[in-house]
Amino acid sequence: MEVALPRPRAAREPFLTRSLDNERLLAAILLAPAVLILAVFIAYPFVMGVWLSLSSTSVGNPGEFVGLKNFLKAWDDSIFRTAFGNTFFYTFWATVFKLSLGMWVALLLNRHFRGKRLVRAAMLLPFIIPTVLSTFAWRWMFDPTFSVLNWTLYKAGLIATKLPFLSDSTWAMWCAISINTWRGMPFFAITLLAGLQTINPDLHEAASLDGANAWRRFWHVTWPLLKPVTLVVVVFSVIQTFSDFQLIYVLTGGGPANSTHLVATYAYQIGVGAGLLGEGAAISLFMLPVLFFVVWMQLRYLRRLEGA
């Protein structure tokens, strides 16, 4: 064996070390596992997805290339347009609520009080519980016959008849938005709290010495420093919300009369329910450019902030 080694041990180590110090080689080695897994498990499905969207594939039938026909058909489909509009509406309001309420909670939690740790951990609970299961719990609370919310309001004398939580188009959408907010708000709160803790308290002190009130202190001192954190959270949240599936699927299935259908649930209905894989893929791919645009804008803004 020793003969087989061309060089003594002492000379080998620097060689290995040297080559690992080569940035390109090291980078390649470090990136390999991630790229490998992604290439094996997502590149093919993604390419397949794009191909499906350009073909007339249905379940069990390979189909042929049809160009952009599926996309045009989807665009011409009134249910798709409803779903597309709903998705924007849903994402926009859910994000607004998650951000504003999350910020509020973060500011509250940033103060010192007894049981702070416990409260912080408790606030995260909605984020932990599997969406499918928590949505079932909400459905149980919105149940037309057994709703605890209706009962409370009824006993309090605020309503005379049941509220149509999930049976009215507008109500149903807002119910979905509130559940999404309930679920996502803790993530915002804790992340923003993390951001708040890095802000030097001296800055606040200085500002309050200058006689700034709480609102102005927040606006002029806290907010500018929190902006980068906020943007990152918003990016993640927009991606998740825009492609939300489980919540609507469990809560309403897109009803009543498509008023809560989102792009993802509709794509599933077409692709799996009706077996039209090509059209389903096209519908779900409609999300990609939108998400890409949102992310690109936010990244650009973030870079500009960093650069400044």
Binding site: P144, T145, P164, F165, S167, D168
Partner: peptide, 10 residues
Amino acid sequence: EGGLAWDDSN
């Protein structure tokens, strides 16, 4: 009228 949103179990 709440039935518009009922699922099969309601």
